[in-house]
């Protein structure tokens, strides 16, 4: 992991904690046995309501990007596609078929070739 200011701060804090725990019990203590609190006998559940961040960021530009935006952003963010490792043309074709046959993606038939072109070329461009 890249060290970030907060991570460094975390490490310093960790080091301090470790030093303290070393003073108490040598050598390095195992992870804190921080047992979660016991549930009160009158424990009750309270309604929850959240707002989730949305994300319809388009695919990076390139031939076929528009077809990707039209067909591949309905059910999941673009990162589902963009974070995939390098895959072969046959693998990409299999994935598109799975989206249509199993997950019932309403693929615009005329966009299929453009989608496959995009999928097989965006990884080469990296």
């Amino acid at each position: 992991m890249i060290k970030t200011p907060r991570a460094t701060l975390g490490l310093i804090l960790l080091a301090l904690t470790l030093t303290l725990s070393l003073l108490v019990s040598l050598p390095l203590a195992v992870q804190a046995a921080d047992n979660p609190p016991a549930l009160p006998t009158d424990f009750a559940l309270h309604s929850e309501s959240i707002t989730l961040p949305s994300n319809f960021d388009p695919f990076p530009e390139g031939p076929g990007a528009e077809a990707m935006n039209r067909n591949c952003l309905t059910c999941h963010s673009a990162s589902m596609v963009l974070y995939q490792p390098k895959l072969s043309e046959a693998q990409w074709e299999g994935i598109v078929d799975k989206m249509v046959d199993i997950f019932k993606a309403p693929l615009i038939p005329d966009d299929r070739d453009a989608i496959l072109d995009y999928l097989t070329s965006f990884q080469k461009a990296e």
Binding site: A44, L45, H46, S47, E48, S49, I50, T51, L52, T74, C75, H76
Partner: peptide, 11 residues
Amino acid sequence: WAVIPTDVDAA
């Protein structure tokens, strides 16, 4: 799947 619960009325 993209439709996930965001509001649950405990009562």
